[in-house]
Amino acid sequence: MATDRPTVPELVQAVREFLEAEVQPSLDGSVAFHTRVAVNVLKIVERELAEGPALAAAEKSRLVALLGHDGDLDVLAEELIEAIRAGRMDVQTPGLTEHLRSTVMAKLAIDNPRYQSYQRALQGGR
């Protein structure tokens, strides 16, 4: 179904801007705190809408390379978990920690790009 403008990202942005500019300043106490949390949640949604599909595609191609066969992202991710739980893969497995690091960095790009450990890792440090 083709919907009209605004697009979903534009709608979420509108709500987030309203909360930030008009609601937040008029509140205090726990409602103000929870409004700040709500604004942060909408920022996560905005980043995921923009970057999520590309990051998921990259995760899938890494998993295909690591596991040696194709499949749905969910199924491949489950297979990786099984391999780690069974002890068939660990920190010594070539490519595993690189894959996990890339996956976690992609999640943090969406969840909380201001996290200090993430900022440090972007600069190549830890």
Binding site: R101, V104, M105, L108, I110, D111, N112
Partner: peptide
């Protein structure tokens, strides 16, 4: 969505 912080 803070789980990823502890993963890194």
């Amino acid at each position: 969505r803070r789980v990823s912080e502890t993963e890194l």
